[in-house]
Simulated assay, not measured.
Amino acid sequence: MGKKKEKKIQHYSSSQKILLVGEGNFSFSACLAKAFGSATNMVATCLHSKDALRRKHQSSGPHLAELKSRGCLVLYEINVCDMNQNPSLMSMKFDVIIFNFPHAGHCGLNETDRLLIE
């Protein structure tokens, strides 16, 4: 059985071990998994519990199903400030860590507003 062909999407490659931190509704990680055809090289995390995620990001269901079907490890309740103490992550090594610009949670402002950036 031959080795799978490497797929590249911009800065990312299916041959890299990728950690996705602070995924909101997991749409980015699901998109990456679809483009690679697999997510066995990916670990996707979010700050929320599974239940809180479902309430906060109702659109996350299909994205999580996509990730699961493609072999992604999804971890809940992972805070970026102390994730190095998480038993599931402590022994893992990654080639790439992706922390997309987090949503600041302010109503009425968007991520380009100077007040919010400051």
Rank of each mutant, 00 (worst) to 15 (best):
residue 51 D to V: 06
residue 9 I to D: 05
residue 29 S to Y: 12
residue 31 C to A: 14
residue 39 A to D: 06
residue 102 P to H: 04
residue 99 F to R: 12
residue 15 S to N: 13
residue 13 S to F: 03
residue 13 S to V: 04
residue 46 C to T: 14
residue 44 A to N: 02
residue 117 I to S: 07
residue 27 S to N: 08
residue 115 L to Q: 09
residue 6 E to C: 11
residue 10 Q to K: 14
residue 87 P to Q: 09
residue 30 A to C: 05
residue 37 G to I: 03
residue 52 A to T: 11
residue 7 K to I: 15
residue 76 Y to P: 04
residue 57 H to W: 15
residue 82 D to N: 15
residue 45 T to L: 07
residue 62 P to Q: 12
residue 17 K to F: 00
residue 16 Q to G: 05
residue 58 Q to C: 08
residue 53 L to K: 13
residue 28 F to W: 13
residue 20 L to G: 09
residue 55 R to D: 15
residue 61 G to F: 01
residue 14 S to A: 07
residue 74 V to G: 06
residue 89 L to I: 03
residue 96 V to G: 02
residue 88 S to R: 02
residue 4 K to S: 15
residue 33 A to N: 08
residue 105 G to M: 01
residue 109 L to N: 05
residue 13 S to D: 04
residue 7 K to E: 11
residue 26 F to V: 11
residue 98 I to T: 10
residue 54 R to N: 07
residue 55 R to H: 10
residue 44 A to E: 01
residue 60 S to I: 04
residue 68 K to A: 14
residue 58 Q to W: 07
residue 41 N to R: 01
residue 78 I to L: 05
residue 53 L to F: 11
residue 5 K to A: 15
residue 59 S to V: 02
residue 20 L to Y: 09
residue 34 K to P: 00
residue 20 L to W: 06
residue 68 K to C: 06
residue 66 E to W: 02
residue 100 N to V: 01
residue 37 G to V: 04
residue 18 I to S: 11
residue 69 S to V: 01
residue 85 Q to R: 14
residue 25 N to T: 04
residue 4 K to E: 15
residue 83 M to H: 02
residue 98 I to H: 12
